[in-house]
Design a protein around this nucleic acid. Structure first.
Lengths: 194, 194, 194, 194
DNA sequence: CATGAATGAGCGTTCATTCAT
DNA sequence: TATGAATGAACGCTCATTCAT
């Protein structure tokens, strides 16, 4: 059954690739592009450095594709919210949670670096410029609007509120593990109608 | 008068050193420690790369001393606030302004990197751990307390309020030039009694 | 009949081996030993790169054995000429033709590299030194002598004539596809009695 | 006198560059582009491998510029012949000598590799294609014509004669140090009117 | 003090070779 | 036999650092 074997190989291939990618996001988030050595990624992933190049062309190329994925995933996640059978305020809470949960933070940090520092390849800068904060605000607007109509979301200018909300979330992430806060609930106070 | 000449040399020496330091903070802030090449600093400062080593022992040593200065300056600035002949709310506004003004941002970014990323020498990590956010909160507490007593600062738990205030400032800096906000005034709303 | 199956395997084995060898000569001739990657050979041969090592121990070993074969074949071909039922001048023409024909050129190029460039393993250099040009001259001498006696080959010192003949053939090959010449006939003019 | 010092530095710079270039041609000629390691060049030149990159951007770039120089020099040398106060046959002898003399051989080998092997960067292939053998023939034609008119050069079709002459010279170089010939005089026999 | 030539440690990447399947 | 995943030695190149001028 060569058919089955081929498929199996394909699966293993994708698993390995994912394993290296996961290691890479973690390291890139912590050390940045120039601070990340291939050996850090491969030893985190538990493979030899040579294997990296079976799965990825260059360090830059991997970084770029990770940023691209992070951008696209973040946009998509907002899109997915709309599909959810939940009240607007619940959706906002879910979003907040997903941004702050452990697996999401490295991706956020990657985007943070890509957005604010000039340590990245040109392609990344251009990529990021296609997705300014405004796009996120715009996509979130309908959810917040519905929330306001239902009386779940606080009154006031929504564009500004969303901007503030995003700013504050960023602040929380950036201050990082520095000090403990009742994260989610505290953040929701910027949004919820008391 | 060799005396005078020596003094003059001393002055030139200090000016040059400062000039290189200023260039360095700017570049370190943008590119991080591993992303910063000595040649970037020296060309920003307009000197030859060899000259760097007349003023500083190594790249790491300069980075460390810059972080140390940034930490100490930031603590000192809070200390200086107390000396000011101004009302508490004015002091807070002045602090806010100084954190966000153009010359301050690179130092903030340096601290941000030192605090959140592991791309720095061990010595820096240890240095930073000696100055956790709590210290800033603690130092600001008297000013906020006086403000509350005078009715200038909003009611509520002050420790929490200061933490939030710092979080939000960080968020603003991190979101960076991404989108326009009425910075200072907007930030003061988290603090002022309306 | 396991006997038969084994034989068949043997045949397949030899065919595969030959197929890889043919690809290898071609690539070695064009790219030299260090310029030839195993993957070039295997993709030219249409097999996986892993398979290479079923048939050959190392890249060097294959290169060496190919050079050895080329040397031995070239010597043998001259030997075979004697057996041929043809006039001396015909024999020389056949030899010329075989050196310049498409399948022969890569082998010639291999020898050219082995003889003139130091990009080869020591063993190859030593191998080649055992077969200096003089040996070729010496082996061709009887044919040319008979030709001269029969009045087919031009008059003059034969050792020199053969050396010139080989030199010119080499020149033609080296100038390569650069410009068109009536190859065979033009070359024969260095030899034939007009 | 900073003026003088700068000039001196410039001179030293050019000398070092030349020193590395000379080492490089020699090694490239012997080992080809992929067979040449930077360390071979630098140890031949007696400098550290790091220094190479003060003077040249990459190995390929150096190779390309050397081939370009070889091509241009070879064309120029033919041009210079015309300026010489010498009889046509003397000019041809001088040309022959310069092609075969020790310092010229490595450049010839470089061109040989660039012209005949596909182990070179694309730019080199294109460069070489701009200077096919025909150009050399064309440039030599006037000299040979004058020689024929003066009765110094043998009768016959000149284009063909020059082509043969170049072919034979190439053959001599390619057969290399394999066997001894009365080089110059023997080669001139293809050209001189006896 | 100022310059840039020189060195070498270190990292990115390639590729010959091995090996499990 | 045949494949391609896996390893690590080796090489191209960068850049921090030193040093002669």
């Amino acid at each position: 059954m060569p058919r089955l074997k081929e498929e199996q190989l394909q699966i293993i291939y994708e698993e390995r690739k994912q394993q290296i990618k996961l290691a890479a996001v973690k390291i890139f988030a912590r050390h940045g592009l120039p601070g990340t050595k291939i050996s850090m990624i491969t030893s985190e992933a538990g493979v030899s450095h040579g294997l990296f190049y079976h799965y990825f062309k260059t360090k830059d190329e991997l970084f770029i594709s990770l940023v691209r994925e992070a951008v696209e995933t973040s946009i998509q996640e907002i899109g997915n919210l709309s599909q959810l059978a939940a009240s607007p305020i619940e959706k906002i809470r879910i979003l907040t949670q997903s941004m702050l949960d452990e697996s999401g933070v490295p991706y956020f940090m990657l985007l943070h670096r890509a957005r604010n520092f000039e340590e990245v390849p040109d392609l990344v800068s251009r990529l990021i410029q296609n997705y300014p904060i405004e796009i996120y605000i715009e996509r979130l607007l309908p959810i917040f609007e519905e929330g306001q109509q239902r009386g779940e979301v606080a009154d006031g200018n929504l564009t500004e509120m969303i901007a503030n909300y995003l700013t504050v979330i960023s602040g929380v992430m950036v201050l990082g593990n520095g000090y403990p806060t009742p994260r989610i609930d505290w953040l929701m106070r910027f949004v919820e109608k008391k």
